[in-house]
Design a protein around this nucleic acid. Structure first.
Lengths: 197, 197
DNA sequence: TTGATAACCTACCGATGAGTAGGTAATAGT
DNA sequence: ACTATTACCTACTCATCGGTAGGTTATCAA
């Protein structure tokens, strides 16, 4: 039987606590700057407990990244399947991304992190980013049907990092509403600067 | 008198050698990932020599950043003073930035680096980035005369990071010419996606 | 109640990196 | 030639961090 006050969590519960702590820590400090000691402190356990659940810092980050990525591609696919008008699909995708930023700011920050120190982790993160790029490129293709390959790639990078910048800016300046931001992005990307105001 | 073969450089010469090595090292590895030992090795001196010329790693990075920034703002001001048409001024600025990337790729990579580890260095880098943002915002103002303050800021961040992404992409994919890239950027930013092709 | 399992801990290891102590020897002015 | 300067070096210190060894005790099944 369980004693009156539970003193130890089950493995699954502890794992979730650690994952949540890791998301917050990575979001606040970045990958390389977050030490396992700090994650352990946030999760209120000692360091070896982390290693009971995750083989390495890299594996822990992988688990965090994967949970975030899965949440995002779920959203993306729903939109891809429902909408047909390319412009509207584009707008809805921007909106979905900002909705994600709004609802899970820590997860969003982790997604925007670019680890540079550990090469394997950097590669891992690039892989997730590449998935995002592919998604954006698919959104973009209808608008540049017979552009050369490099034009599509360069435009995709431009858009992706531009959106990332908007997201980061929003996280630090939460004034405007999501709708206002979506309108701004659509005006910049769709209409362009040529039209005064 | 100097002996037949100079065996030791003067302080100024050595300083320049170190600075050049530091630019290459920071460009290749980033700030946090570049050790003073590696910079010393690239400059073919031992580590304490670095500290004869620069008080700390941070001070060395500062010197590198400042030289780069000065080179850039020189270019920027020349354009600001010569051109008057806002659109043409915009185009010329994009071209100047890409010219900088083309001519000094290592310096450009250092400029695009965002150090996250050392807080003082991160702040320093942000200050330089803020200067770039201010310049971009000035270019943008004529096109959004009575937009709210936050719209200008968000658009500036979007553009700045978009351009950074284009630059990084170009450094890794040097296929297209500078003119082609400028045209692409102008088409995206000025015309927008609404116009097919 | 008792034994097995496993959640959890303290205290360490080895590597790496910023920065320094304390010297040696090439150079420049006299 | 003699001396002061200084460019330059080897060999450290100290802190941090990823990861581990080895033990302790709560929990659960029998």
């Amino acid at each position: 039987m369980t004693s009156r006050v539970r003193q130890r969590l089950s493995a699954a519960e502890r794992r979730d606590v650690i994952l949540a702590a890791a998301v917050r820590a990575f979001a606040a400090e970045g990958y390389d700057e977050t030490s396992m000691d700090r994650i352990a402190a946030r999760a209120k356990v000692s360091k070896p407990v982390l290693y009971d659940h995750f083989a390495s810092k890299q594996a822990l980050f992988l688990a965090v990244l994967e949970s975030i990525r899965d949440a995002l591609i779920g959203k993306g696919q729903a939109i891809a399947e429902t909408m047909s008008d390319p412009k509207e699909k584009f707008r809805r995708s921007v909106d979905a991304f900002l909705q994600f930023v709004e609802q899970q700011p820590d997860a969003a920050r982790v997604l925007l992190i670019v680890p540079r120190g550990d090469p394997r982790t950097a590669q891992l993160s690039r892989k997730v980013q590449a998935g995002a790029s592919a998604g954006i490129a698919r959104l973009l293709v209808p608008f540049m049907p017979d552009s050369s390959r490099w034009r599509l790639h360069a435009s995709t990078e431009f858009l992706k990092e531009g959106l990332h910048a908007i997201a980061e800016w929003w996280l630090d300046n939460p004034g405007p509403s999501r709708e206002e931001l979506v309108d701004l992005v659509m005006h910049m990307v769709w209409t362009g600067l040529h039209q005064q105001r």
